[in-house]
């Protein structure tokens, strides 16, 4: 048996299924449901076994068509930067407000992806988000939390 990435993923999946199965057994069902042939636990328990079964087979059986990804082709740095930008975006969207966090998210992600035309970056961030906000907030009356704009006194 040759060890490759798909096998490692399958192993992780096997562990996940086992954990899922364990958690499924921990589900507290109501007293009146405990004797029922099919209660809230039943399906998850079978599901846990199914996950262990399929991933187990994948680990044991030989690969018909192994997939190998050459890591030298992968752009880890860019991807991780972008994921981190998204996480920061998610963390600030409620606290700082929709306008600034969205605009900055766009600015940074354009930049990380290699965009250097500043005019382009600036047009498709702040004014773009302002128009988007106007359509949602003003026209469709979808409330967008924005403590910053509230502080400035633009938004109620």
């Amino acid at each position: 048996m040759k060890i490759n990435s798909v096998k490692i993923i399958s192993l992780l999946f096997f562990v996940l299924s086992a954990f899922y199965l364990y958690t499924a057994h921990q589900i507290q069902v109501f007293a009146f449901d405990e004797g029922a042939p099919f209660n809230a636990k039943t399906f998850p328990i079978y599901l846990g076994y199914a996950g262990m079964f399929f991933s187990g087979l994948k680990i044991v059986l030989p690969d018909q068509k192994p997939v190998e990804v050459d890591p030298t082709y992968l752009e880890f740095k860019k991807t991780i930067l972008l994921v981190l930008t998204m996480v920061v975006y998610g963390a600030t969207i409620l606290k700082v407000g929709f306008f600034l966090s969205t605009s900055l998210f766009l600015v940074f992600s354009y930049y990380f992806l290699g965009e250097r035309r500043w005019k382009f970056i600036l047009i498709f961030s702040f004014p773009f988000v302002a128009i988007f906000m106007y359509l949602l907030h003003g026209v469709l009356a979808v409330y967008l939390r924005d403590p910053l704009l509230k502080y400035i006194g633009i938004m109620g």
């Binding site: 972008l82 998204m86 975006y89 998610g90 969207i93 969205t102 998210f105 766009l106 992600s109 354009y110 992806l113 290699g114 965009e115 382009f120 498709f124 949602l136 979808v142």
Partner: peptide, 17 residues
């Protein structure tokens, strides 16, 4: 460089909304 940030923006905003 433009399309990908836009896709990410719409995904995040879509869930937020």
């Amino acid at each position: 460089t433009f399309l990908i940030p836009m896709i990410l923006f719409f995904s995040v905003t879509g869930i937020y909304l």
